[in-house]
């Protein structure tokens, strides 16, 4: 049995064309590679200090 109210929560307002710029600016662009590079750099920095 489908619960209409629950299903309705899965739908979100779609972004309009005017909102594209804001959407791009708010995009979360973090990735694993960035995290790994940061970790590797921190590790290297610590080894250089030690």
């Amino acid at each position: 049995m489908i619960n209409f109210e629950e299903e309705l929560k899965k739908f979100y307002p779609s972004l309009e064309v005017e909102d594209a710029a804001d959407a791009i600016r708010q995009q979360d662009l973090s990735d694993m590679a960035e995290v790994i590079v940061s970790m590797l750099k921190d590790e290297k920095h610590r080894s250089d200090e030690g």
């Binding site: 779609s14 791009i24 995009q27």
Partner: peptide
């Protein structure tokens, strides 16, 4: 049909 999403990805 998500044109804004598409444009966002292409601009990035």
């Amino acid at each position: 049909g998500d044109v804004v999403g598409a444009l966002t990805e292409w601009v990035i």
